[in-house]
Write a protein that binds this DNA or RNA. Sequence first.
DNA 1: CCGATCAAAATTGTACACAATTTATCAGTT
DNA 2: AACTGATAAATTGTGTACAATTTTGATCGG
Lengths: 250, 250
Amino acid sequence: MKPLIPDDTTSQALTAQALGGGPDRAREDQSLHDETLTRLRDYIVEGSIAEGGRVPERQLCEMLKISRTPLREALKVLASEGLVELLPNRGARVRPLSEQDLGELFDVMGGLEGLAGRLACEHITDAEIAEIERLHYEMYGFYLHRDMHGYFHVNQLIHQKIVEASRNAALKSAYANFAGRIRRVRYSANFARKRERWGEAMREHETILDALRRRAGSELSDILFKHLRNKRTAAVEHLKTDGMAASEPA
Amino acid sequence: MKPLIPDDTTSQALTAQALGGGPDRAREDQSLHDETLTRLRDYIVEGSIAEGGRVPERQLCEMLKISRTPLREALKVLASEGLVELLPNRGARVRPLSEQDLGELFDVMGGLEGLAGRLACEHITDAEIAEIERLHYEMYGFYLHRDMHGYFHVNQLIHQKIVEASRNAALKSAYANFAGRIRRVRYSANFARKRERWGEAMREHETILDALRRRAGSELSDILFKHLRNKRTAAVEHLKTDGMAASEPA
DNA sequence: CCGATCAAAATTGTACACAATTTATCAGTT
DNA sequence: AACTGATAAATTGTGTACAATTTTGATCGG
């Protein structure tokens, strides 16, 4: 058989354990439950299970080489995180994200990023700003070379840095949670083809950096929300067109 | 890469399930797990267990008249919500909230409320605004009569209405989660004695209502965050002084 | 008398068994 | 042949048993 789940799954941003405010537990003495939780979450976030697909417990148990008890515990947690849906006596399904759901999630992300920016202005060091500037120009390079992949990567890095600079663990956890939920659709749907929006996003990032330099919290908060709102529009638009094709076969 | 999952897309049943820890759900065919989850959460939020207090599973099982399995499932979920802490082989403890934790939570609440206000401006109806106005004046009445209890109650109602008007279920859930975490300390600590802050808060509420009437999203978002930031200062100050006395006997 | 070491009890982590509910299969009837 | 109903299989929900770890308690030595 196949491993089904790679061991060194790059769990980059999703370090924090849920909304808990992250006791950044070392990988050593993780209980079977925690291990299962992390692996299942990554598995789902990566989009390895079809939307709304039924997931028999037995099958997952075999896959993860554990018994049902820790698996079910993990499922309950994932349900509370919003990743799966638990239907009574009918098992767990990967929570389908409607157009509206995605819109809502993006708005919340916008609120959280706005908050992160505002708080970052209170705490960020010059060195951190310099680092973000560096990333910004790197991103600009990707933009010029039309390297979408590199662009997105650095883009996420910048937003992540801002969240870090907020010095707020609770915010960081919540952010990671919502990011994971969105990332699932982002995985199955490639965000390319938004060339016209690209330049606009790049300009928005200029203003973000500017506000950050001036430590203008309220202003930055506003800019970041609107930035995400624009992203939202593009994303929902994308899901609307691409989502159709995916669920078309009928 | 892995089929593994039959593509059975018959899921349309949108159970009002915990989206991020949302405490609103139908009381009908709750599984024992859900029932336990709700009851335990309420129990903890109400402050019935001392901070950091050990909570033997057996004891809780007797109290809730259930076996360990659903209880443990509930504990895992509460841990992911940040209410309790799970120490390996050492059981669950009510998560102690440091001064900093409380500050962080208040800031996140501020961000969420700001977001709620911004979104509310996009969706709120005149009737809803009228309702909030009514509550506002009711609250003002309590203020004039120096009725702290009534004031706080209506105050929470107003903030709740704004969240409702945002028309964002994900936000509502996250808000409920963080509100619960804060409420735990608010219960054990009576927020009285903040007379001087009271008038200021009342004035802030005037501006909130004003911005809401004008549907000035960005402005309202800013006001709401700053409003919560002021609350935060008062609350943290309170915990600093009162928290000492509370954790004395140990 | 106080502290350390080891055994006993209690508590937690996981697996498994059984009951309840849902889903699938298959007659029989129109 | 399609539909309805009953029955069988499978799956989920909950309780309990057992192993592993921690906490408690007692004995021994200083």
